[in-house]
């Protein structure tokens, strides 16, 4: 068999190998998603035929409640993301540059939420930080009686989403930090850099790729969340997840729910594009 024929045969085998997952994604994801998006733009006319209309989008962007929900979702996403990185980066740095039993214990604690289902986290947080919860009782014991529970406030979903997102964030950051050699840190110290300078000028630029992945993945996960905001957050304004759910199932307005979903999808796709670009660019940089 000639090399060309063999190459062609291998090519077809490769295509056959990926055909089933590609078909599954197309049939169960892209097709219904495309139908929903088209359904928000093209509407059936009375008496047959279709008409193109942006009416549902006009409604969304002129409706104060919808816009407040979108703003709340963006606020929750950005605040959670910033806090998540602010909390996990020091832990990741500690775990990367410290050896010993304490680092192992911290790692186990930080990764623990990964093995707890979201609904359990929600109930646990309600029992812990909710009104008359354990935290309030503990604070009362030490004489603090002015506890204001974050449950059902904008901070409720932030805390829950941080809990939920911490393990994956930590794993990605540790993976990024593990690529920084001890020698490059020592070389920076050797030329006169202090700890803060090393963090700012050496470590942070070296883990930009990991930070970008962490930001993109968490943005996608947080923005579209329904469970945590539903269980822990306020209802007015609310995040897009519970808003879509309520519009679809309680208000029974599938067109507006699809419009909300499309807007959510378009915003998330920006983070998706950043993630894909980051993934695609990395191997090219490595090949340089």
């Amino acid at each position: 068999m000639s090399a060309t024929a063999m190459s062609l045969r291998n090519g077809w085998r490769g295509l056959a190998f990926i055909a089933i997952p590609v078909m599954a994604i197309t049939i169960f994801l892209f097709y219904p998603a495309a139908l929903s998006i088209i359904g928000t733009l093209v509407h059936p006319k009375d008496g047959g035929g279709y008409t193109f209309s942006l009416q549902s989008y006009v409604f969304f962007f002129t409706d104060g409640y919808s816009l407040a929900n979108l703003a709340r979702t963006l606020w929750t996403t950005v605040v959670t993301l910033i806090l998540l990185i602010a909390v996990t980066l020091p832990i990741a740095l500690y775990m990367r540059f410290t050896k010993g039993p304490l680092a192992t214990v911290i790692q186990a604690l930080a990764l623990f939420p990964m093995f707890v289902p979201g609904i359990i986290i929600c109930y646990a947080l309600i029992r812990y930080m909710g009104p008359n919860g354990w935290l309030q009782s503990l604070l009362s014991l030490v004489g603090f009686h002015h506890y204001a529970s974050p449950h059902l406030t904008p901070w409720g979903p932030v805390i829950g989403l941080m809990w939920d997102g911490m393990p994956l964030t930590l794993l990605i950051l540790i993976s990024g930090l593990s690529n920084i050699s001890n020698a490059s840190i020592e070389a920076a110290r050797d030329v006169g850099a202090g700890r803060l300078r090393i963090l700012v000028s050496i470590i942070t630029p070296e883990i930009t790729h990991s930070l970008l992945i962490v930001s993109a993945l968490n943005f996608l996960g947080i923005f579209g969340q329904a469970l945590m905001p539903f269980m822990l957050g306020p209802t007015n304004p609310e995040m897009m997840g519970p808003f879509m759910l309520r519009t679809f199932s309680s208000v029974r307005d599938p067109l507006q729910a699809s419009t909300q979903a499309t807007i959510t999808f378009l915003i998330c796709s920006l983070a998706g594009v950043a993630y894909v670009r980051s993934i695609a660019r990395r191997p090219q940089e490595d090949r340089k």
């Binding site: 050699s181 020592e186 070389a187 920076a188 050496i202 630029p205």
Partner: peptide, 18 residues
């Protein structure tokens, strides 16, 4: 090390890739 009048060349180069 940052305050010593020494400079070290490391086995692994230890250059900063960015």
């Amino acid at each position: 090390p940052e305050k010593r009048p020494t400079a070290m060349v490391f086995q692994s180069h230890a250059l900063w890739g960015h």
